[in-house]
Design a protein around this nucleic acid. Sequence first.
DNA 1: CAGTAAACCTACCGGCGAGTAGATTACGGG
DNA 2: CCCGTAATCTACTCGCCGGTAGGTTTACTG
Lengths: 218, 218
Amino acid sequence: MPEKTKRARRLPREVRERQILDAAVEVFSANGYHAASMDDVAEVAGVSKPMVYTYLGSKEDLFAKCIRREAKRLLDAVAAGVDADMTPDMQLWSGLRSFFSFVGDNRSSWLVLHRQALSVGGSFAEEISQMRARSIELVAAVVVATGTKQGIGEQAEKSAEGLAAALVGAAESLAVWWLDHPDVSDGLLASWLMNLVWLGFGDLVKGEVWTPNFPATT
Amino acid sequence: MPEKTKRARRLPREVRERQILDAAVEVFSANGYHAASMDDVAEVAGVSKPMVYTYLGSKEDLFAKCIRREAKRLLDAVAAGVDADMTPDMQLWSGLRSFFSFVGDNRSSWLVLHRQALSVGGSFAEEISQMRARSIELVAAVVVATGTKQGIGEQAEKSAEGLAAALVGAAESLAVWWLDHPDVSDGLLASWLMNLVWLGFGDLVKGEVWTPNFPATT
DNA sequence: CAGTAAACCTACCGGCGAGTAGATTACGGG
DNA sequence: CCCGTAATCTACTCGCCGGTAGGTTTACTG
């Protein structure tokens, strides 16, 4: 009995590292950083624990590498979909579609970035927060650009970051909601947001303002 | 030397339980469920560990009680600010103000609910998700109500839940953003959201739709 | 001023999981 | 075919933390 490929044979370090990272993302996303054990990671990766330590270092190191890799993948995916030559609304539209598309194809990546990374605290939370802040600033730039073009740059700048934070949060939240309602296309998700936010923002640019009791101009 | 109140004297169970719960919320919010130790909780509460177990039960029990208490406080706070007689936009406005106000006054409560509860997994995540889903449904109801009043109920209903999820997420995200930018009033936060979302939604109700390339009607 | 019940503590156990020591293969080049 | 090296494993140590056993003190109550 030749025991055909009785277990994944000896593989070059590169490949194993990737496998282990994949497994780690899976495990961390499922149970969170603290609840995940290195034994779990090793088992899912089909490898013994010392391998994990030899190749990826301590648990913290491993988690950091997961976060960084997945974050890069996400940002690259979004960046690939956006072209600086496009109009602001098309930039937003494309970015949102890319984002939702990525999340749809990489649930674990999204979960580990969104849910777990923040709750660990320490340097990870810092890192993730900064990345998120960068995203918000990018969106804010689009907002300001539009506002400036329409001649109300000053007013827009004041609230641009807040609006951007709200928009980013809305997208993230929709992504989470999506996990429970998979029977919706990524395009539809993006169009909801565009309709909600871009139309509203368009009104803002035009000078319309909502205020309690008298919904008219300032 | 009378050693004036040398340490918090013997206190009735009720009071101690509250103190311990307060401490637990603090500790859980700071470090997350798994990283928090019962010794930490006991120390912050100014009490020895067996007290915690005698009064609040196991670590899971304790966490559940934290979550439930804080969730109730938050929901009550929002409910107290909203009156069913108000117009939909005013309901939204009041609810948002109450929400932001609560978060501003209870950072730990918010953190433990938003960041930690979801990442623990198991029954807690379930519980929190359901509460969040209820909130989304409430908002969705407001959306549908408005849509129906304007005669486009059917179309609104399809996307109402998605829109509501986006709105709730935007509010949550703004709340988090607020933690890093405390020099903004809760009213301003709420007004940003109202301007962004309600105006956009108003356009939707009026039949305007954003689509790629030709931003006009369907 | 007992005496009892409730509040509260010190000091421990057992298990789990991070991290490691050191042997043991398999593959690739000579 | 054989040797070195990189890949891989088994089998441990050790500290931390959830949970508890059992005693001690304080405050009411009659």
